[in-house]
Amino acid sequence: MRTLAWRKGLAWALVAFFVLGGVMNIVAPPSVADEYMRWGYPYWFNYVTGALELASAWLLSRAATRAAGAVLGMVVMTAALITLFIHSDWSHAVLPALVMAALSIILAAQFKQLKTSVTASGTSH
Protein backbone atom coordinates (compact mmCIF):
# COMPACT_ATOMS: atom_id res chain seq x y z
CA MET A 1 0.00 0.00 0.00
CA ARG A 2 2.87 2.37 0.79
CA THR A 3 4.34 1.77 -2.66
CA LEU A 4 1.08 2.80 -4.27
CA ALA A 5 0.89 5.93 -2.11
CA TRP A 6 4.32 7.27 -3.10
CA ARG A 7 3.67 6.47 -6.78
CA LYS A 8 0.41 8.40 -6.71
CA GLY A 9 1.99 11.23 -4.74
CA LEU A 10 4.86 11.54 -7.19
CA ALA A 11 2.51 11.36 -10.16
CA TRP A 12 0.30 14.11 -8.73
CA ALA A 13 3.31 16.29 -7.94
CA LEU A 14 4.32 15.96 -11.59
CA VAL A 15 0.76 16.76 -12.68
CA ALA A 16 0.93 19.97 -10.64
CA PHE A 17 4.35 20.82 -12.09
CA PHE A 18 3.17 20.37 -15.68
CA VAL A 19 -0.11 22.25 -15.10
CA LEU A 20 1.78 25.18 -13.60
CA GLY A 21 4.40 25.08 -16.36
CA GLY A 22 1.77 24.76 -19.07
CA VAL A 23 -0.25 27.69 -17.79
CA MET A 24 2.87 29.82 -17.36
CA ASN A 25 3.95 29.08 -20.92
CA ILE A 26 0.52 29.77 -22.40
CA VAL A 27 -0.04 32.98 -20.40
CA ALA A 28 3.62 33.89 -21.03
CA PRO A 29 4.34 36.79 -18.70
CA PRO A 30 7.10 39.06 -20.08
CA SER A 31 9.86 37.12 -18.33
CA VAL A 32 8.79 33.86 -20.00
CA ALA A 33 8.27 35.45 -23.43
CA ASP A 34 11.68 37.14 -23.16
CA GLU A 35 13.37 33.79 -22.49
CA TYR A 36 11.82 32.21 -25.58
CA MET A 37 12.96 35.19 -27.66
CA ARG A 38 16.47 35.02 -26.16
CA TRP A 39 16.65 31.33 -27.02
CA GLY A 40 15.69 32.08 -30.63
CA TYR A 41 12.31 30.36 -30.70
CA PRO A 42 9.40 31.75 -32.75
CA TYR A 43 6.90 33.96 -30.91
CA TRP A 44 4.31 31.15 -30.81
CA PHE A 45 6.56 28.37 -29.51
CA ASN A 46 5.60 28.95 -25.87
CA TYR A 47 2.02 27.95 -26.78
CA VAL A 48 3.24 24.64 -28.20
CA THR A 49 5.32 24.01 -25.09
CA GLY A 50 2.40 24.92 -22.82
CA ALA A 51 0.00 22.65 -24.70
CA LEU A 52 2.44 19.73 -24.50
CA GLU A 53 2.91 20.31 -20.78
CA LEU A 54 -0.85 20.37 -20.19
CA ALA A 55 -1.25 17.20 -22.26
CA SER A 56 1.47 15.55 -20.19
CA ALA A 57 -0.31 16.61 -16.98
CA TRP A 58 -3.61 15.18 -18.21
CA LEU A 59 -2.00 11.89 -19.23
CA LEU A 60 -0.10 11.63 -15.93
CA SER A 61 -3.33 12.19 -13.97
CA ARG A 62 -4.86 8.93 -15.20
CA ALA A 63 -3.37 5.57 -14.23
CA ALA A 64 -4.20 4.07 -17.62
CA THR A 65 -2.23 6.76 -19.50
CA ARG A 66 0.44 7.54 -16.91
CA ALA A 67 3.26 5.90 -18.89
CA ALA A 68 2.37 7.93 -21.99
CA GLY A 69 2.29 11.08 -19.87
CA ALA A 70 5.72 10.26 -18.47
CA VAL A 71 7.13 9.74 -21.97
CA LEU A 72 5.62 12.99 -23.25
CA GLY A 73 6.89 14.84 -20.18
CA MET A 74 10.36 13.40 -20.78
CA VAL A 75 10.30 14.66 -24.37
CA VAL A 76 9.35 18.15 -23.18
CA MET A 77 12.00 18.14 -20.44
CA THR A 78 14.64 16.81 -22.85
CA ALA A 79 13.91 19.72 -25.19
CA ALA A 80 14.14 22.12 -22.25
CA LEU A 81 17.46 20.65 -21.13
CA ILE A 82 18.92 20.79 -24.64
CA THR A 83 17.87 24.44 -24.91
CA LEU A 84 19.39 25.27 -21.54
CA PHE A 85 22.62 23.42 -22.31
CA ILE A 86 23.00 25.13 -25.69
CA HIS A 87 22.66 28.50 -23.97
CA SER A 88 24.86 27.49 -20.99
CA ASP A 89 22.00 28.25 -18.61
CA TRP A 90 23.18 25.68 -16.08
CA SER A 91 21.31 27.01 -13.05
CA HIS A 92 17.95 26.58 -14.77
CA ALA A 93 18.79 23.02 -15.86
CA VAL A 94 18.51 21.57 -12.36
CA LEU A 95 14.69 21.51 -12.18
CA PRO A 96 14.12 19.88 -15.59
CA ALA A 97 16.79 17.29 -14.70
CA LEU A 98 15.01 16.49 -11.42
CA VAL A 99 11.68 16.26 -13.24
CA MET A 100 13.28 13.87 -15.75
CA ALA A 101 14.44 11.70 -12.86
CA ALA A 102 10.95 11.71 -11.32
CA LEU A 103 9.38 10.85 -14.68
CA SER A 104 11.86 7.99 -15.06
CA ILE A 105 10.79 6.64 -11.68
CA ILE A 106 7.11 6.85 -12.69
CA LEU A 107 7.82 5.12 -16.01
CA ALA A 108 9.83 2.35 -14.34
CA ALA A 109 7.05 1.83 -11.79
CA GLN A 110 4.45 1.64 -14.57
CA PHE A 111 6.48 -0.98 -16.45
CA LYS A 112 7.04 -2.96 -13.26
CA GLN A 113 3.31 -2.88 -12.54
CA LEU A 114 2.53 -3.97 -16.11
CA LYS A 115 5.04 -6.82 -15.90
CA THR A 116 3.58 -7.95 -12.58
CA SER A 117 0.01 -7.93 -13.92
CA VAL A 118 1.01 -9.79 -17.09
CA THR A 119 2.92 -12.39 -15.07
CA ALA A 120 -0.01 -12.80 -12.66
CA SER A 121 -2.52 -13.21 -15.47
CA GLY A 122 -0.25 -15.78 -17.16
CA THR A 123 -0.06 -18.00 -14.07
CA SER A 124 -3.80 -17.97 -13.39
CA HIS A 125 -4.66 -20.07 -16.45
Rank of each mutant, 00 (worst) to 15 (best):
G73Q: 11
M24F: 11
A120S: 12
L103P: 04
A11K: 00
T83R: 07
V75E: 09
A109P: 01
H125T: 11
S104K: 03
W39N: 05
N25S: 12
A79H: 08
S31Q: 13
L103I: 07
D89S: 08
M24R: 10
N46C: 04
S61N: 02
A93V: 06
A93P: 04
S31I: 11
V75S: 10
A11W: 01
A13I: 05
N25P: 02
V76H: 09
R7I: 03
A57E: 01
K112R: 15
V19S: 03
G22Q: 07
K115I: 09
I86S: 07
I26M: 13
L72M: 13
H92C: 00
T116P: 00
Q113T: 14
A102T: 05
L52K: 01
A97E: 06
W90P: 03
L84A: 07
H125E: 13
I86F: 09
E53H: 00
A64P: 01
L54I: 08
Y41W: 14
L60P: 02
D89E: 14
L14I: 05
Q110G: 03
T83Q: 11
V27Q: 10
S56A: 15
G40P: 02
A109G: 09
M37T: 15
H92L: 07
L4V: 06
W6V: 14
D34E: 15
E53Y: 00
V76A: 13
P42S: 11
L52F: 12
T49Y: 01
V94G: 04
L114T: 13
A5G: 00
G22L: 04
V15W: 01
I105L: 14
S124C: 08
F18K: 02
L98C: 12
W6P: 00
H87F: 09
M24N: 13
T3A: 12
T49D: 02
A51S: 12
W44L: 11
Y47D: 10
P42R: 11
A51L: 12
R7K: 11
A28W: 07
L103G: 04
G9R: 04
T119Y: 08
A16I: 13
F45H: 06
